[in-house]
Design a protein around this nucleic acid. Structure first.
Lengths: 150, 150
DNA sequence: TTAAGTGCAAACCCTTTGCGCAGCT
DNA sequence: AGCTGCGCAAAGGGTTTGCACTTAA
């Protein structure tokens, strides 16, 4: 169904469907829960014996972002990551500063913020909401450690 | 007063106060409303006849972030920008996709989100909340244009 | 057939690092 | 003297680009 959208968009813009473009999109479909960078996509394809060049991976990802199939995420570590853009479900990211794990957080309160912005004349297209901190697991570990020391 | 904080922090960590460190911090103080990248800082100093090497600019900025005097912002264009971290006033960014202007948005609703996270065991340290869209000015312009066409 | 797409390697660009010299303490 | 800090230039690392070859339509 993502593939269908891709084909449709390509036709609209008079671009072509190619095996490489399908392969790149499939990587994102098969790794839905992950946040993959271009390098990751390249390596995943490579280890599956599908050789798609890095240049093509980068170009295809740009295309998929342009088509709204992928959302670009930036965790501030110098690597752009991407995730399938499921329009229905807006979610955000909590990044643990200790273990590095990324939690997806569903947020309903943002609706209020959206409404306020709209009333001020802002049209929003994309939210990027990241929270950095310490996740429950890590703060539990830290707690245990300090108790053992006593 | 930022300078005082810098001096204090440096003393704490047994680092030294230098003219370069003061100059870099001053650039941020004198350009409070802007979001400067390292390159910008370097150029601003250069055009004011103060030569501080790029390496030092980068190193000093890292230091200032470490001390909590600067906040790192990432608008996803491959350049890290920084702003003076005024702890009191949490604000966020609206980036217009047409004119590129960055609006600072004060947000009070995030308090609710913070509370919910806390109750789930998440400890947050930093919020990064960016909204991409079209600002009131640009959407007005677009509107006028389409009306003229009629 | 022919314009779009691909692969390769080199180029880019922001950022980081190694190293010798300068300057606090 | 012994570190810390600086400037310079080179290296790093993710991303982009030029160009000749390949391929979808």
């Amino acid at each position: 169904m993502y593939i269908e959208t891709l084909k449709k968009e390509l036709k609209n813009k008079k671009y072509r469907m190619t095996p490489q473009r399908e392969l790149v999109l499939k990587v994102f479909i098969d790794n839905e829960s992950k946040h993959l960078g271009a390098e990751d996509v390249y390596r995943l394809l490579f280890s599956n014996k599908h050789t798609v060049s890095k240049a093509t991976v980068y170009r295809t990802i740009d295309l998929l972002v342009e088509f709204g199939l992928l959302r670009k995420i930036d965790f501030g570590d110098g690597i752009y990551r991407y995730e399938l853009a499921k329009k229905e479900k807006m979610h955000h990211h909590f990044i643990c500063k200790i273990c590095g794990k990324i939690y997806e957080i569903e947020e309903k309160h943002l609706e209020i913020i959206k409404k306020e912005l709209l009333s001020q004349g802002f049209q929003f297209e994309d939210f990027d909401f990241k929270i950095y901190g310490i996740c429950p697991k890590c703060s539990k570990k830290a707690k245990n450690k300090s108790e053992n020391k006593k």
